[in-house]
Design a protein around this nucleic acid. Structure first.
Lengths: 237, 237
DNA sequence: TCCCCTAATTGGCAGGTACCAATCTTGCAG
DNA sequence: CTGCAAGATTGGTACCTGCCAATTAGGGGA
């Protein structure tokens, strides 16, 4: 039983109350929620801030707070492949193609901010959804931070493995998305015609101190995968 | 001169102070900033919240607040093509391909949440960066909300035009990104070989009440364009 | 010398108050 | 009935206080 912050509890409660309400339904006013739940308005605002950031509600000064229309895209949470697939109601699976320790090299070392001569664990996997190929994934991790990883069970969620066995929590990631023409071997592995295009996602996973933990290149089949997310107008800089 | 909120001013000030500091340099403690700038700690936290959300700093409880490593990607702000290109140090330009009023049709009507029989303004443009083709863009807007738009000057920023002339402010947008094989006419317009792949971005722009204002499909050249952004681990739901 | 425990430091959470700014509602004037 | 203006409502900003939780630094003991 994890003791939760009050605003977290309140967030859940509000989420539950909202469930089923049509879009643009007004929520109670902040002052009313505050009174009803016996918390300060400050705490209410914290909960609403979170809901707003998640795209569950929107607020208009002077008017009120309202249920946001059902979002097609659940914003863009940082998810592992396993989570991502389950969100799409697909069963994730994995086929290990290669795993071993190699020297980092210039490019990977740059991404991970380590010495090019340092050793990294490299894991290549073909990832499946409902039994059919979905993407090719190559992960690089500093060998020093994940001792013995290459010998462990790599068929499941890597993020989970990193968290449970090595205490590495990935808090954020930088991604670069490009469209590419697939090479012959790639299209063969993914089971698509030669010359098909694919979606290449280059990701660097960072721990909560913003230091790189993992660099991954993923090549998705263009016909089965898309990326959905919500962007908000940023404040003027 | 727009009167600004204090935490906004403070945010700018901190950003300026941080400029030039190497990554992981600690900022003064919240209490210290509070004292030094003569504002409450609450306000300091608001400013830091914004900076953290923007990826400029990171915070570790018990340790302090630190300058975040230079981000490759300036998070994922909602930007117009014009802004986007200028960020990349490219000069944006436009060639109008077609503009007119048509019936919405099922698909567009669904995205804009209007009647399929309602009229929409459709604008197709070839967008250039430093004189070379970058993407093909087709915008749909409810005709009712943008009277006379088809007759206006469509060579510049559409977002700006909507804001200045029609009072429509787009506060957020939902995007779907896919890799596609370009059709012959498309590759011809973009000036790439037949059979090349492209990046298709489908976007629905929402005003601050989350109601759809604009639906755009953009087809980028794969060789000149990528999408960069930072994702953060979301709270458990 | 090394390790562990404690104390101080730092960000996180929660309560309260006051006033401002945008919006909506109401009612009066025309 | 219409249009506008004043007031009430609602979210936004700012201040304050107090305490909790994670982390770090320092001191004492083995």
């Amino acid at each position: 039983m994890a003791r939760q912050a009050k605003y977290e509890e309140l967030r859940m409660a509000l989420l539950a109350e909202m469930a089923g309400s049509p879009p643009h339904t007004p929520l109670p006013t902040e002052r009313e929620i505050s009174a009803r739940h016996g918390v300060s308005r400050n705490t209410v605002r914290q909960a609403l801030d979170a809901l707003e950031a998640a795209g569950a509600v929107y607020r208009v000064q002077g008017a009120g707070t309202f249920v946001a229309p059902a979002v097609v895209s659940k914003s863009l949470a940082l998810t592992s492949f396993s989570e991502d697939m389950r969100d799409r109601d697909l069963e994730p699976a994995s086929r290990l193609l290669a795993a071993g320790t190699v020297r980092a090299g210039r490019q990977v070392a740059g991404l991970l901010e380590i010495d090019p001569e340092a050793e990294v664990v490299r894991v290549s996997r073909l990832r499946l959804a409902d039994g059919a190929p979905m993407c090719l994934e190559t992960v690089h991790l500093p060998a020093q931070r994940v001792p013995g990883l290459a010998q462990e069970d790599l068929s499941g969620s890597l993020y989970e493995l990193l968290s449970v066995r090595h205490g590495l929590e990935i808090g954020s990631a930088e991604q670069i998305v490009r469209a590419v023409d697939l090479a012959e071997t790639e299209s063969a592995l993914l089971g698509v015609p030669v010359g098909s295009s694919g979606l290449r996602v280059q990701r660097v996973g960072l721990d909560r101190r913003e230091s790189p933990v993992e660099a991954t290149t993923t090549l998705y089949r263009a016909d089965r995968y898309d990326i959905r997310f919500t962007v908000r107008r940023a404040a003027r800089s």
